[in-house]
Design a protein around this nucleic acid. Structure first.
Lengths: 102, 102
DNA sequence: AAGACGTACAACCATACAGTTGTAGATTAT
DNA sequence: ATAATCTACAACTGTATGGTTGTACGTCTT
């Protein structure tokens, strides 16, 4: 969970996730979108991949990046749990606290 | 948004948010919960406060920390937008991409 | 008044992070 | 075969992060 939130704590990476949730993009296609070097974008993709927010598949010489909505959902679930906690619906706080350790 | 996700990218801080969403806790009460110095916990609270995930109010010599569910909701909304994007329900991608810049 | 408690903040250290440039390996195109 | 494209990775730089200890100050308690 640390890695997921950390990966999302960067506007460029959130943008990459958003775009690759819609369509596959090669790394270099993504790199053209941002005012930074190819290597920098490549690192951002690696961070997202490490958090399982995107996956890559090879097509010829390029790597196609696509967003992984399941991981987004996992993160959303953690936030939902926090909201639920606030509403006081949960009495077994331990359950959620244990989950958060994920 | 960067600050919110960054603040959530740490298990100790997520734990503090969870606890303070339920009840107010003084900084030193929180500090007793974790295997680190008071100053370290104080810094975590400062990060959360900077992200507006918690607020502090004074009571005598102590500062009571309480979680801010609105900010959690804002973060959850961003994730929801990403999920929605994936489901292809949105044709105006620009709208969401602009929002993400937040 | 003195001491204990709660907090704030500075200084310091080690590590991690975001960016750069440069080099090298595959794959496609001419 | 050569050249262009796409990717991977290493090395380096500056800055941010998470932790520590130490000092100082306001607020209770006795």
């Amino acid at each position: 969970m640390d890695r997921i939130f950390h990966a999302l704590a960067d506007a460029t990476r959130r943008d990459i996730v958003a775009r690759t949730l819609r369509d596959e993009h090669s790394v270099s296609a993504l790199a053209r979108l941002y005012p930074m070097s190819f290597a920098a974008v490549q690192k951002h993709v690696a961070v997202l991949q490490g958090a399982e927010l995107v996956t890559k598949r090879r097509r010829g010489r390029e790597q196609l990046v696509s967003g992984n909505v399941d991981t987004i959902s996992k993160a959303a679930h953690v936030l939902d749990q926090l909201e639920t906690l606030w509403r006081g619906r949960i009495d077994r706080i331990g359950e959620i606290l244990a989950d958060k350790a994920t």
